[in-house]
Design a protein around this nucleic acid. Structure first.
Lengths: 105, 105
DNA sequence: TTGACATGATACCTTATGGTTTCATAAAAG
DNA sequence: CTTTTATGAAACCATAAGGTATCATGTCAA
């Protein structure tokens, strides 16, 4: 699994997030992805490389085509990182409770 | 709520993610956050501004101090975006099922 | 009020990053 | 075999982004 930094970095660009949304419906070649953007195929390929480096997509070669597939594991990695904050409010409430009990003997 | 781009942008830097982790335990002033990093207070302040722009923290002024607090709503925004991909596998399985049924009359 | 402390704000520097252009390569079609 | 077609790769460019240094401002304490 790639370093989490490369995953967050990959998600920081709007074009790359749009690509992920496209790939949710079906796998796409570089050319197919590029059709949806007003930029060169070379630029799109760079974005796909960054997404791959971040573990958000996987790539397989079929003849002269390169097919890009969404990788749920990459999404899950980010989800996992975020769940660290899930207990945020719980902790806050616990501390608040302690304070109250301490002040009301 | 801030544009999602500013939120993802804020998360893309390792220093800023570390700051969020620190703020999970308790609120901190700029100086307190800066103590944990090998960079100037000015740089840390910039990071805190980016985090605020992304809706990941809130800021309140208390005298001459500026207290930074984690904002769960910002985290939730990212979570929500990611849940768009939750149905990914469901959709894939549904399509696969259709294909099978079509091919086996 | 005076001095120390916490922060605000600006200018400036270096490196990443997103993008284009151009040329090379490899597979499918004629 | 020749010609498309789809991609790989490298050089180059402009701007954004992370940092520093410096100076201004506001507040707490003596």
């Amino acid at each position: 699994m790639p370093p989490i930094q490369s995953t967050f970095r990959a998600l920081a660009d709007p074009t790359r997030r749009d690509i992920l949304v496209m790939l949710r419906d079906r796998d796409l070649t570089i050319a197919e992805v590029a059709e949806n953007f007003d930029m060169t195929r070379a630029a799109v390929k760079k974005h796909l490389t960054v997404l791959s480096d971040g573990g958000l997509i996987t790539i397989r070669t079929s003849g002269r085509q390169r097919i890009n597939t969404l990788n749920p594991a990459g999404i899950a990695t980010v989800m996992d990182w975020l769940t660290f904050f899930d207990v945020f409010w719980d902790d806050r409430l616990t501390k608040l409770k302690s304070e109250i009990e301490k002040d009301t003997p």
